[in-house]
Nucleic acid binder design. Structure first.
Lengths: 156, 156
DNA sequence: TATGAAAGGTTGAACCC
DNA sequence: GGGTTCAACCTTTCATA
């Protein structure tokens, strides 16, 4: 499936929805860009079909939600098992994201949240039980993400 | 700001919306859990007021979108400027997320996407220009995230 | 705090240019 | 590809227990 080039409208739609999906209707985007709502809906639907849109998620402030400990666990996995171990790490309760790095010693970065040290100890044990070697663990002070604004278009 | 305990319905609502917000209406959640739709909407609205819900974002497959290079850049920032530099890093075109670590040498992890090596070189230069010291750079093979799913454990 | 009902907005599909 | 229309669904607001 050859991935087509994105045009300016595609990128604008993605930008707007990446910033806020609940508060941004197709009609709003269409109005701001100057096309009809159904044009925007068609683009969204096409982007989904092409697999460029992977999903849509609520963004939770775990600290506010009572999970004060936000930690990143650096692990080592043998390359052949790296991908499978990364997937399995996601099933450990408390884990919220996993990054697989192409190379390097610490090639799996697991992020997990917990309410207390006991939670984190258990998570560490669970990860080790899967076969991951834990190299280091650090507290995360903050995490930000943002839309791809590659296309330094207007912001609003 | 006393962070209230989340009850089982709160956690279920968060779980469902974290998994898929576009495809999950309040009515669906209400039906699956066995309460009325407006009960679910009130919960969502309360979670927003309390700051537990921070936003909602589209999840993009950057590789499919034509940004083949997915890289993590490990940086060092002096603690007093760490938070501000982390925020500023978000403004660099191509940067999609930033994590600040509490301690350690490499205390800012920047994730960026690009179409080619030139993009990445420019991003590196931009980060350095902000005052970040770049320690290392690695290609990311994959990134997964998942809802917080240890709701079955807690009781209240 | 949970529920129900009416009004207005949003979506997806079929059809036309 | 872009646009229009319409039925079904969703959300907001208000009223009620």
């Amino acid at each position: 499936m050859p991935s087509n080039e994105l045009d300016e409208l595609d990128r604008y739609v993605i930008y707007r929805l990446q910033k806020d999906i609940r508060g941004t209707s197709a009609a709003t985007i269409a109005n701001d860009y100057g096309v009809s709502p159904s044009t925007v809906r068609k683009r969204i639907s096409r982007l989904e079909d092409e697999g460029i849109i992977r999903g849509s998620h609520l963004d939770i402030d775990y600290e506010q939600a009572g999970y004060q400990l936000f930690t990143i666990i650096f692990c080592t996995a043998p390359i052949p098992e790296r991908e499978q171990l990364a997937q399995e790490a996601l099933t450990v309760p408390g884990v919220v994201s996993v990054r697989e790095l192409m190379t390097g010693e610490e090639n799996i970065h697991v992020v997990a949240v917990g309410r207390d040290g006991d939670d984190l100890s258990r998570i560490g044990r669970d990860l080790a039980a899967l076969g991951l070697e834990i190299v280091e663990e650090e507290l995360v002070h903050n995490e930000y993400s943002c839309p791809l604004h590659w296309f330094d278009k207007q912001s609003d």
